[in-house]
Design a protein around this nucleic acid. Structure first.
Length: 1055
RNA sequence: GGGGCGGUGGCGAAAUGGCAGACGCACCGGUCUUAAAAACCGAGGGACUUACGUCCGUGUGGGUUCGAGUCCCACCCGCCCUACCA
């Protein structure tokens, strides 16, 4: 259809004003009826699997979902127009606690609650106008879905990836379930869901062996994922290389009759090079050996400490201070490298869940061990030389002959003199390197008075006595030096080690301990071993002497998947008295969740009391058996949903087998893996790690033939609540001390701030903005200066709230909000449905793309959307309005073409690179250019092309409006099935270019030259510019460069 | 304590080492209107200047470069994640 035929058409139609409320439902229904977004395998096209994280059906799609999903949809649409066969599915992560809590609180069955929410959210998602292929919808709580979740369990069990063990696990007493480690958050160890402090429980639980893939999960070479996520996963897995070293319990500390190897005490260390500095051992309080080695006289203290450590996770930790605690067992261990006898302690800073649950403590080079040793008076012996050569010495007042300070100064030492209490002046010397230290020691020996000592700490550990030098190089010398010091100066008698004595002097504190790698000292045959290769050499030596071996440890633990809840996929296992643990045969899947259950007010799983579910027969022997009543973590279901979309509820009703594939292999071969995945970064160490593990396990099972589930990942940021002022209240009442008791409250809305009466505080009246509110009081700002008055209220007292017809209570008064997360209680939630009703989905989509850097997010701004509203209307008008009289300003045909090609180029590139805000900016610019060019070009073929291009570029962003205008122009349905426009670099060229001229980095002029001018011509033009010449007067030009013909840079200096 | 991300007008933000502030919001001026709203047009980082223009400007201080918001070093501030992991 040609442009001119269209013009006649347009004149017949009176242009309607833009009305999204008509347009959007109309096109949504049409697209639906035409199955426009149904994805069908087409081997003639390249495929593109675009996936965005699926929502949990909590009852409402909120603005965060829109923010995450709209740009993902835009990009999927863009890819489709580019010629890809695109799959963009959606589903619901439908198992989980909130459904069960609703059941308990409101007597609604979780299934009813969940499916009703899904129904509602599906409608909300449809209102967004996304190109979702709804025929592929997958809901994880339906048997057709969770049958395969169960199937994977059996498969993993078969592969040895699923196992059961009794383990201390985190248990939330409120949610009545165990949690995965990553669901326990922060210092207080609180439940991710409800914030209740978790407790440790010893339970038989099912685990999945994710640790088997620890090394492979550290390899990101096959995927394009954000650094942030890769880092989070790397840190979470935390691979540590080191050695396992076998210490032994001193034979006399083992129970009589114990076999010698029972005393083996294996530790993991990343610092085998510090083995010679291990002056004590610490076992975790839960370590099995504690019971056997504790000496009778220490038993009571040990048991009391163990009890306290177990309880400690139950009580909220009061302070952030981390004072080390622990007790001595009375037993000793032998350090295999030097046969030193070292005490065995227990302390809660050693965790049973990491490494071997036991450590060798090297207090000189580990800060935790250092703190522990200082507190409990355990010896600290340095075994790694300082790399910085730093050493310090403090000359005690009166310990040296007169003239020492002058001698120090003459010799060039760095020192300060300061009074020490009443004792006189002390000298604080700082030394760098061995040469200085040697000179200092010699000088000190010359000046030290009889009956005194001096020490050099840090890069040298020397105690200078009048009869010679003693180095702190062993536990024995530590004791000997300390004894001598105590004899010389009795006030130090309280100290148990030299380090403890030295630690009292603040001047020394930064030199007593260092964790760096360096040359080994005080380490027997390894003395002098340089940093490089020291660890490897020690490991080789340990292995040669059969004292230990190189070892790798991970912080990553196996994935605990058992949940003591009803609303999850059943774990398909039965327990038989004769056969033990028996997996349910593949053919018998799914193990169905029974519907007829009674929910306990306690939250305890009703499955435990459901006789029909509980009792079954053993698949192996046919005898009586009971079912596993735990269900699987919901993350199991979301670990494979990207494959479920390929053929949802695959082969439902037909039996599964061990060698089944859980989805249509033709679909999988074509679509998988996911090409672009978008979603929140908060899933970094949970979902995003689990799904990678899952795919690797599936690969090993021969079900998929690739290693990674999602090739490219991008994270969006978070939209926060909008800052706002609080309501203004006028309160009458009476003073109660410093507070004001409210009798009656009048509210002036925060929206009418201009009409607020002035703040006031008088005998019977308080008036001002509400800064904060709780159940019993308001904080009212009663002066410009910020003076706050506490107004006591009754939570339910009736208050007239402007705009609230039924009348509210004091709880409805809005208080001042700075930027915070959106939450219902703060009443700062943005409801997308209301925005859609007011502005239309296209505008909301565009605003969410335009307002923020997508990967960053930020606070909501309810005014900013107006700019997008205006733009959308301008687009509407520029297409639909009839020709107007020529305006003053217009664009040449060449300029219009250039604007068009530039728009295509930049929008294509920015969509590709997730630069959504600049996509809208470029669209706005292009629209502005069209507005300008309209009067001159309206009706021409060029104009038609320019307008069509605008609609094609807008189609992914504002799909409804683009479709409507496309139809208005009489173009063939659908705009979404058109090819994405391309640009011609030749069209971007301009005839003349303006080039700035810099002198010494400052712009001093601009010259306009033909686009094809060569560098010499540009340089000549630049030097000829009047302002440039003015600035070059009296200057000598050193250099002129014309990089890329983009600017002229002149370097000059005064003659 | 460890790690990460960020700091640019009143606000959201642009800017392959090359004219800082594109595109918007808010504000201000104008056109239209009896008036307002809407729409459209226009000015705007700061200081000085009638003006041409000049100086200063991307958290602070250094450095590399003809040229730095961008790269390097040190520091300050904010946010996020993580946390006794041997």
């Amino acid at each position: 259809m040609c442009g001119h035929a269209l013009n006649g058409n347009q004149e017949e139609k009176m242009p309607n004003p833009y009305n999204p409320q008509d347009i959007e439902p109309k096109w949504q229904a049409r697209w639906d009826a035409d199955s426009l977004y149904k994805s069908v395998i087409d081997h003639g096209k390249p495929k593109f699997y675009a996936l965005t994280m699926l929502p949990y059906p909590s009852g409402d799609i909120h603005i965060g979902h829109w923010y995450a999903m709209s740009p993902s949809d835009v990009r999927a649409r863009f890819k489709r127009m580019q010629g890809f066969d695109v799959l963009f599915p959606m589903g619901f992560d439908a198992f989980g606690l909130p459904a069960e809590n609703a059941a308990i609180q409101r007597s609604i069955h979780p299934k009813t609650w969940t499916l009703a929410n899904i129904e509602r959210e599906r409608q909300q998602l449809r209102s967004m106008g996304m190109m979702i292929d709804w025929e592929r919808e997958a809901i994880s709580c339906l048997p057709g879905y969770y049958r395969w979740s169960e199937w994977f369990f059996l498969k993993f069990y078969e592969m040895g990836l699923a196992y059961r063990k009794k383990a201390p696990v985190d248990y939330c007493p409120n949610c009545k379930t165990t949690l995965a480690r990553e669901q326990v958050i922060g210092e207080e160890h609180i439940c991710e869901r409800c914030g209740t402090p978790v407790v440790k429980k010893d339970l038989e639980q099912w685990f999945w062996r994710i640790t088997k893939y620890a090394d492979e999960l550290l390899d990101f070479s096959k995927i394009d994922w954000p650094d942030k996520i890769r880092l989070a996963q790397t840190n979470w897995i935390q691979r540590s290389e080191g050695a396992e070293v076998t210490f032994t319990v001193a034979p006399e500390d083992l129970p009589a009759g114990a076999a010698p190897e029972e005393g083996d005490l294996v530790v993991f260390t990343t610092r085998p090079d510090t083995l010679w500095g291990a002056t004590f051992m610490v076992l975790s309080p839960e370590h099995p050996l504690v019971e056997r080695i504790t000496r009778p006289e220490y038993r009571a203290a040990v048991q009391s400490y163990q009890a306290q450590a177990a309880r400690q996770t139950e009580i909220e930790r009061m302070s952030t201070e981390k004072e080390k605690t622990g007790v001595f067992t009375g037993a000793y261990a032998i350090n295999p490298v030097n046969d030193a006898r070292i005490p065995i302690w227990i302390a809660d800073y050693v965790l049973i869940t990491y490494g071997t649950g036991a450590i060798m403590a090297v207090p000189a080079h580990d800060d935790r061990d250092f703190a522990f040793a200082v507190k409990f008076g355990l010896p600290i012996i340095p075994v790694i030389d300082r790399v910085d050569g730093l050493a310090k010495s403090f000359a005690f007042p009166g310990s040296v002959r007169a003239g020492f300070a002058e001698a120090l100064k003459d010799a060039g030492f760095e020192f300060t003199a300061a009074p020490v209490g009443e004792l006189g002046e002390g000298l604080f010397v700082t030394l760098h390197g061995n040469e200085q230290i040697d000179r200092y020691i010699a000088l000190m020996q010359a000046y030290l008075l009889e009956g005194n000592w001096n020490e050099v700490v840090g890069a040298r550990w020397a105690f200078i006595f009048s009869d010679g030098i003693r180095e702190l190089d062993s536990v024995e010398s530590d004791a000997e030096i300390l004894t001598r010091c105590k004899a010389i100066y009795p006030p130090v008698s309280e100290n148990r080690t030299c380090m403890e004595m030295l630690s009292h002097l603040p001047f020394y504190r930064d030199t007593l301990f260092h964790p760096e790698y360096g040359t080994m000292i005080n380490s027997g045959v390894f003395d002098g071993t340089p940093v490089k290769g020291a660890v490897a050499k020690v490991v080789a030596w340990l292995e040669a002497n059969e004292l230990g071996r190189g070892a790798v440890n991970y912080r990553l633990r196996d994935w605990l998947i058992s949940r003591q809840r009803y609303w999850g996929a059943p774990i398909p296992v039965v327990y038989c008295d004769t056969c033990g643990v028996v997996p349910v045969p593949y053919e018998d899947l799914p193990v169905l969740l029974p519907d007829d259950v009674d929910f306990m007010p306690t939250g305890e799983s009703p499955l435990k009391y459901h006789e029909g579910f509980l009792h079954t027969t053993c698949p192996k022997c046919g005898g009586p058996a009971t079912r596993e009543t735990d269900t699987m973590d919901t993350f199991v279901c979301s670990s494979w949903y990207q494959y479920a979309y390929l053929s949802p509820y695959y082969r439902e009703g037909k039996p599964a087998h061990a060698d089944s594939i859980p989805w249509d292999t033709e679909e999988a071969k074509y679509w998988a893996p996911v090409d672009t995945y978008t979603g929140g970064a908060e899933h970094a160490v949970m979902h995003l790690l689990y799904t990678r593990f899952f795919t690797k396990a599936l690969r090993d099972a021969g079900i998929v033939n690739f290693d990674e589930p999602m090739l490219q990942l991008r994270n969006q940021g978070t939209i926060l609540g909008e800052p706002r002022c609080g309501d203004c209240v006028e309160v009458t009442g009476a003073w109660e001390g410093a507070a004001f008791r409210a009798a009656e409250i009048t509210v002036y809305s925060f929206q009418d701030q201009a009409t607020w009466p002035p703040a006031e505080r008088s005998a019977g009246l308080v008036r001002g903005e509400v800064i904060d509110r709780d159940d019993v009081s308001l904080k009212v700002q009663t002066s410009e200066a910020g003076e706050l008055t506490v107004v006591l209220i009754d939570e339910d007292m009736p208050v007239a709230i402007p705009g609230k017809e039924k009348g509210g209570t004091a709880k409805d008064i809005l208080y001042h909000l700075d930027v915070e997360k959106m939450s219902k209680s703060k009443k700062n939630v943005v409801a997308p449905d209301e925005l859609v009703a007011q502005y239309g989905a296209d505008t909301v989509r565009a605003y969410l793309m335009f307002g923020w850097r997508w990967e960053q997010g930020g606070p909501w701004d309810s005014h900013g959307i107006e700019g997008v509203v205006r733009w959308i209307n301008r687009v509407w008008n520029v297409v639909t309005e009839p020709a107007q009289a020529a305006g003053a300003e217009t664009l040449s045909g060449r300029e219009l073409l250039r604007a068009m090609h530039f728009a295509v180029k930049s929008i294509t590139e920015d969509l590709e690179g997730f630069g959504f805000n600049t996509v809208i900016a470029r669209l706005m610019e292009y629209t502005n250019a069209l507005s300008k060019a309209r009067s001159a070009h309206y009706g021409s073929a060029l104009w038609d092309e320019a307008v069509a291009t605008l609609l094609l570029l807008i189609a992914p962003v504002a799909p409804h409006m683009a479709e409507e205008l496309w139809a208005f122009l009489g173009k063939p349905y659908s705009v979404h099935q058109q090819a994405w426009p391309t640009w011609d670099p030749a069209m971007l060229v301009v005839d003349e270019i303006e080039i700035p001229v810099q002198i010494n980095g400052k712009v001093r002029g601009r010259v306009t030259v033909p686009a094809d001018a060569d560098e010499d011509a540009i340089e000549a033009a630049a030097l000829a510019d009047a302002n440039v010449q003015r600035h070059l007067e009296g200057q000598q030009v050193l250099k002129v460069i014309v990089p890329n013909k983009k600017l002229v840079s002149i370097a000059a200096k005064p003659k």
